[in-house]
Nucleic acid binder design. Structure first.
Lengths: 205, 205, 205, 205
DNA sequence: TATGAATGAGTGTTCATTCAT
DNA sequence: TATGAATGAACACTCATTCAT
């Protein structure tokens, strides 16, 4: 029944090609039409493969969306982990999280639309799918906050489990604004500055 | 072509009854199954009317969801406007906005689930539907912030248009946490306190 | 179950008013949209009555169409019978049948469209409904032909039962042409002349 | 959007099989129930394919009916064109047109019922659908008449554009009689003879 | 008689998924 | 692996008809 072959990450070169091609096509199509209005046949066409081929790489349509999230969020997490290691103070780190998140999506509008619009969407996601990489992402923020508390830079009565969600919500909303507004009134730098100052002041000891 | 009868609010008692009954039923059913998995026939059954009757009050399935948002958000806005008039300082007002939003949804889980999960959802919403009441809601926050700036309570370099979105995003995310988590680790009071302090410090002059 | 009140012809003045009003409205609406695309509510609106009122005068939607045919064809038959009595030779009588039929419909385009397009249509008509008045109409033609044979004006080996159908078919087709063509190439007089000469020569002894 | 594959005629054997199978099934089902009372699922069952398969070969339900007309009328036209070439005088040719038309349908009662009852039917046909093959058929008759005029066999004051319609109407009506009457009083030969003599005398110089 | 709100049966069409090649 | 023709379950919406007033 489950004929999907590639559940892990490291695969043969050839397969990977097609897996990646389908994923890129899916992001493009999802962004254009929304998940529910996107047809498998459109994705197949965009990817240059047959409809049936998609089922060699993905369990079903939902699986494509899940894989898109997981894989792209995984990349974001890897990038954040990598960069945060090079910084040595929570203030710069938080600023980097904020700037990194907004810039990333600003540069990949299609992916942003998909994540912004579809992430919270269907029951498949909020009910059945446990977004592992999403939790990991939140935890990166929480780690930075905890580090700030430990170093005495941030207030001591902060609950990282709450703050991480508030920050993520704020970032996500600003990202939606950035991506869904045809002619945004505020530049990305403005958003980053306003948001950073808001949170850093709000958190500071 | 459009046979929907109740576009305004104040109607005859009988019609209103049914309009309201259908809306309540829809919220319940949407919350349970998600919008796309909810069948018109389920809503009709839950409301105790015939399938066809729904189309006397709503243009189509999407229209039900839109009306739910608009009407409920309208109530929230009315409540906020009403209460904020009784307070005289921006700090208390912002605290009220935060507490009001979270408590409201905490007390109406079904509606919260619908709004949280479906609001940003399909192209119908982020692409075709212009959420008038939602904009109004954001502007209430922005008004409070502007007032705070005028009174010298909040910083002068704040951009209300950015801050209102950041705050809304944070609140929304916390609401999702509250509603979607089976056994939340944090009580609503905790969330309100953490969020209020975070933002009030972040905004303070 | 059958609540239709007016099955005969001679009725009270008041009822007749509404019966007639609905019928006229129906002809107009059927002609515009075709039978299957016409809604009871449209007819009701056009007639200036409530939907339910129609069911006080007609058994159901099909019944309206049947009544339209029967009543209008009845009028045609009455007119033909009346006029044919005043003529004394089969040649003039046949000419009159031909001219009468085409002129009648040319002057009532809406009715013509309905009869032309809908008469042969639905199973209700070709299968269940026995078009009494239609048979009567055909028999008027057949009577004229028989009379012509008796008087020695028309050939003796003619079968009136066949000829009446051929003539009706020809007339009907020309009527369709007249009515459905936006800018007919041939005037009604031309059609009458061509058709009369064709059939009179074809029938002549 | 339009996924129908077979718009032309000559296709691979497999596809053609199914296209033809569905068409035959449709004729059978339409003849039995009338177009509006025929369900896609019935046609699919009769054809031995899945409901969805029909939509690989036809745009929609209307399209099936249109294709039936066009293809069958196309065959009639081809047959007529082929046979008429072998005859050398308009009298025999017209006789052949008359006999050919009636015999063809007499031998394919289902198709006859469909064409007789549905051809003039719905707005789809008289209003939106332009019956190309039907016009072609009429023009074959008109060509024969013109040829007869040129050869001095038929009268000179004939208008072929009118006569072709009158003849078609007559034939069509006789065909309906033949097909819709349970026990026709007149044999097909009788009809052909009566009709041929009627028209040939009517047209003769 | 007249109304028109309410009913609910009925169906064309889409599209994710399968599987023979 | 790859294909794409075939499948068939699933569902929003319409509208003729009813009936309480």
């Amino acid at each position: 029944m489950n004929t999907a072959k590639n559940n892990g990450q490291a695969k043969g070169r050839n397969n990977n090609d097609k897996h990646e091609k389908i994923m890129r096509a899916a992001i493009k199509v999802f962004a254009k039409n929304g998940f529910h209005n996107s047809k498998i046949s459109q994705i197949a066409k965009e990817a240059g493969v047959a409809d049936g081929t998609i089922y060699l790489y993905f369990k079903n349509k939902d699986d494509i969306l899940i894989k898109v999230f997981e894989e792209r969020l995984g990349e974001i997490n890897a990038m954040l982990n990598d960069q945060l290691n090079r910084l040595d103070n929570p203030v710069d780190e938080l600023r980097f999280c904020i700037r990194g998140y907004l810039e990333l999506f600003a540069n990949n509008r299609a992916l942003a639309e998909v994540i912004a619009v579809e992430l919270r969407q269907s029951h498949k996601f909020m009910r059945e799918y446990v977004p592992a990489k999403f939790a990991e992402y939140l935890n990166i923020i929480s780690r930075v906050i905890r580090e700030g508390k430990d170093k005495g830079v941030f207030r001591d009565n902060l609950l990282p489990g709450v703050i991480k969600r508030a920050l993520f919500g704020a970032l996500d909303e600003l990202m939606v604004y950035l991506v869904m507004t045809t002619a945004p009134k505020y530049a990305i730098d403005t958003l980053v500055d306003q948001c950073s100052e808001l949170f850093l002041r709000g958190l500071s000891a």
